[in-house]
Design a protein around this nucleic acid. Structure first.
Lengths: 345, 345
DNA sequence: ATGATAAAGGAAATCGATTACATAAAATGG
DNA sequence: CCATTTTATGTAATCGATTTCCTTTATCAT
């Protein structure tokens, strides 16, 4: 591998001049620049980034920590972020924490050691007994932008979706269709995301003076099986809900399975609103009405925020928290509530 | 950020000793080791990786180049690879090429500049007029393991799925069910992957003396829409196939849509074998019989190969090419061919 | 032509580690 | 007890760039 000294020799100049050319900081005669450029091309020279870092303190690398890259939501966020940072020649180290905060801690200290310029963090659910970790996180010497999942700390740069709004829109939609017995299947993680979707659900019911039935609120692990089993338990209630709002794609798949097993038609027998809108969800019968999250936009926005911070400092941000709105996509899985057909069995 | 000199001062030793402790190369008295360890803890010292690289020539970072991380196949490969390399404290820079060979070239030279220790490469389809690029690739100073998609070059480390076997198994399955009019929908990329699946299809037909009908071979872009449109064109043929083998998940979704639009029942009216087996594919009606690729295993194996190369050199590999077998998962989308119901209209 | 100013380019310090080499201290053995 | 080996530690070179601080050369107004 050619080094800067090789280029310098070949071009008959000093390494300082070569450096000036590669970093285009001017004060180099056109003719010498030409010589240097030729030498660079001939030797196939590329500056050594780690070496360069020592002086510049920049690696042009950022870290992105995600809970589970096989959850199709996160690759979309990743791609959004990548498409932005690549413009500035950044590259992304992707770390998969498996929803485990200890893994996250491990990765974060590796990223710190590797001197990434910044971090996009989609947090794993906090472990109880690990509260002081947030303090440490907050004092990390590398800028962090939180994405999607918001820790309780105030005043930290974060880009999230409007989950309250999402839950509210979904529930309101069902209410407007005449439903009153509306259940929710959601995740029990200690995460803002799911708490807020539930909040939106509650808010919508309250606004329409619909009493909240706590047996209609089902929480569990974010898996297909859990979706099926919680679905079953709702279906088998004596006052079976006429509509279900599922706040998560895996549980949605599970729920649809439960409906099928129970021989229930959607939307004829029961209405469903799902969460997340992936391309392949087109395969559902019927096509699902869902709350679509601005996944790509979240990645993009978070990346833009981070780049702004890297350029001008955290305090340059007009507002540290960005909330992107989710969109209700109305398709075919919700029907109008009809007293005779449904309701009390 | 604490540096090695700070630790040395605090512990009252030289930086050499600190380095010996952090790299646990022995020859340090227990008592001084203790002092150093304490100083490290107190100052929260982590060695600076880029600086360390200068001497060690290792970044403990590898690059992974994928065509499209939002294709659910690749996150699984990624996770497989990550789970292996993390054991050795490697971290992965993930690069998304968008199936564009020029993007790939760009990323590869960045990875080279960043001095990654090795690269896992899932190639973008080669561009015509860009043939000399493979030569350059082959001479890259950093070891590459090719994953999934195999370039024509011989004798390079690669981990691929048995695509011929996959195509063969799928087609044979249909033949055994009595089908003779078997179509294939595949991708027209200049990629080994798709060529080979087609090869497997042809091989199976030949072995059973079934003439190959070139109108049954449909090739197109890897999109849902294309799956639908190629599906339509097959459905509308005067001698409509009684079974279709789709070599790609997106086109499978599209094809299922086409069946639905045409009012065809699967497997009653037509049998389908798909490719890839994702968790969410459970939502299909009926559940699809598919060729499942060993996605995770590919990632793991590729990572193991790369690590072996990094440790012992390329020549230490017993065999450079690893072919992992794909598995036919028989579910509900294939029926027995019945003369009276199907066949010639 | 001359002094002042700007442009061009080089020498050497520097970034934060690792490591070869040197040396001091401790252990070993006859 | 002294020579020899082993163990423990320090000094300084080194990795490959960037950058500060000079020096030299070119440009320009007078």
């Amino acid at each position: 591998m050619a080094k800067i000294i090789d280029v310098a020799k070949r071009a008959g100049v000093s390494i300082a001049t070569v450096s000036r050319v590669t970093n285009r900081q001017g004060n180099v005669k056109k003719s010498t620049e030409q010589k240097v450029l030729e030498a660079i091309k001939e030797l196939n020279y590329i500056p050594n980034f780690p070496a360069r870092y020592l002086k510049t303190k920049r690696t042009l690398t950022i870290g992105m920590v995600v809970p589970d890259i096989t959850n199709p939501f996160f690759p979309i966020v990743f791609r959004g972020a990548e498409s932005v940072v690549k413009q500035e020649d950044y590259t992304i180290i992707l770390c998969n924490t498996f929803e485990d905060e200890y893994e996250e801690m491990r990765y974060l200290s590796i990223l710190e050691a590797k001197k990434v310029d910044g971090i996009l963090l989609i947090k794993a659910p906090p472990r109880s007994g690990n509260e002081q970790y947030m303090q440490k996180l907050n004092n990390l010497p590398v800028p962090i932008v939180y994405v999607d999942r918001l820790p309780k700390l105030q005043d930290i740069p974060a880009v999230v979706a409007d989950n309250i709004g999402g839950g509210y829109a979904a529930t309101t939609h069902l209410i407007k269709l005449g439903h009153r017995n509306i259940a929710i299947i959601t995740v029990q993680y200690p995460l803002s995301v799911h708490r807020e979707r539930l909040q939106g659900y509650v808010k919508a019911l309250r606004e329409h003076n619909i009493p909240i039935n706590r047996f209609y609120i089902k929480q569990g692990a974010s898996t297909i099986e859990e979706g099926t089993s919680l679905g079953h338990s709702l279906i088998n209630m004596k006052d079976r809900p006429t509509a279900i709002f599922v706040t998560n794609y895996k549980m949605t798949i599970g729920l649809m399975r439960a409906l099928e097993m129970a021989g229930l038609q959607c939307p004829e027998d029961i209405s469903i609103v799902g969460y997340d809108d992936f391309e392949w969800e087109n395969v559902f019968h019927p096509r699902l009405t869902v709350v679509a999250q601005p996944a790509r936009q979240m990645g993009q926005t978070a990346a833009q925020l981070l780049i702004k911070i890297l350029r001008d400092g955290v305090d340059s941000l007009p507002n540290k928290r960005v909330i992107l709105s989710s969109e209700l996509k109305i398709r075919e899985s919700c029907g109008i509530y009809r007293q005779n057909k449904l309701g009390k069995p």
